[in-house]
């Protein structure tokens, strides 16, 4: 019984490889190609593994007698040189054949992503746009078209990767790199920085949302609009605190006096799927804890803590930020 269990165990492990950040659960054209590539390579490796171990089993258990010189020579040259060369050549040609498609040009929408320590500035350039629609820590893409992604980095090297949608590309300070993505299945996925960039590299993620083209257009229109006015008395207190505490020196909330460009744009913060670049839920509790002490969640973060504010003031601030839909 042990034999089948050992063979089947990896299959169960692989079957559980779905979820928002899995290369084996593709939601985009490029990721499909990469997933297929993985399965083909795995199949090739399994064939080699079974053949090699079968051979070892054969010569040690089934027929443990010396082979004649000619048969041994055929086995060594055939099994050791000819078969691996043919197999590797086929697999290499197959993999290389898929590579140019990973570099196709995007059409229409261009998304410009800049890696910062430890967050992402995201600027949308719809076709013909003269100024971008700026947001942060979330990349939204429409289905049914190949969007161009241009990548920059502010100070250190980062790498941009949404496993469910495609391959990864490095972001290098002073140099623009590019890729393109063609999502096929709407849903919420997750991206992650994949080049060590400092203390909180592991906490530098982002939400990746794929939408139907019409829904995307509507979202982009909302995103381009200025921030909504605070709706409650508490939120209005929070808005005043936001400005008096100097938050606007780093953060922009379009439509208000806050115009800072150092940190993430917060104009529509509350409509994002996560807080603090993919590491906290977008709730007022999380907002309050984040503003009080960002370094608790993200060591090395540039934003200072606001623990000199009272709990009441922090709650007002969270109410304001949580209303920025």
């Amino acid at each position: 019984m042990r034999g089948p269990a050992v063979v089947l165990l990896p299959l169960f492990v692989l079957c559980s490889c779905d979820g928002p950040q899995s290369v084996l659960d593709p939601a985009g054209r490029d990721a499909e190609v990469l997933a297929t590539l993985f399965w083909v390579m795995l199949a090739g490796a399994v064939v080699l593994w079974v053949a090699l171990n079968g051979l070892i089993h054969f010569v040690t258990r089934i027929a443990p007698r010396p082979l004649n010189a000619r048969a041994a020579e055929a086995l060594i040259i055939g099994g050791g040189v000819v078969v691996p060369v043919i197999l590797l050549s086929i697999l290499l040609a197959y993999a290389l054949n898929d590579m140019p498609r990973q570099r196709d040009k995007g059409e229409g929408l261009r998304v410009e992503v800049t890696g910062h320590q430890f967050w992402w500035r995201v600027a949308y350039w719809p076709e013909g746009a003269e100024t971008p629609i700026v947001t942060a820590n979330e990349v939204r893409l429409p289905t049914g078209q190949r969007s161009e992604i241009t990548l920059n980095a502010e100070r250190v090297i980062h790498s941009f990767w949404i496993p469910a949608l495609g391959g990864k590309t490095d972001m290098i300070p002073g140099r623009e790199t590019r890729m393109s993505l063609e999502p096929t299945r709407p849903g919420e996925y997750r991206g992650q920085c994949t080049e060590f960039c400092g203390e909180s590299h592991a906490y530098m993620a982002f939400g990746a949302v794929v939408m139907e083209p019409e829904a995307f257009e509507e979202w982009l229109e909302r995103e381009a609009a200025p921030a909504v006015e605070p709706a409650t008395e508490k939120a209005r207190r929070g808005a005043a605190l936001f400005l008096s505490e100097g938050c606007g020196g780093c953060h922009a909330v379009r439509g208000t006096a806050a115009e800072g460009q150092v940190g993430p744009d917060l104009t529509h913060l509350a409509s994002r799927v996560s807080l603090a670049a993919g590491i906290l839920p977008m709730t007022e509790d999380a907002l309050r804890n984040w503003v009080r002490d960002p370094a608790e969640f993200k060591p090395g973060v540039e934003m200072p803590g606001y623990d000199h504010l009272s709990e009441d003031e922090l709650s007002s601030m969270a109410a304001y930020l949580g209303g920025l839909e």
Partner: peptide
């Protein structure tokens, strides 16, 4: 020599498929 010939061919193969710099 045989191993080196295979190596040279494998090293050159990407140029056959990839038509852009980036």
């Amino acid at each position: 020599s045989i191993a080196s010939a295979i190596g040279v061919i494998f090293v050159a193969m990407p140029a056959l498929f990839i038509e852009t710099c980036l």
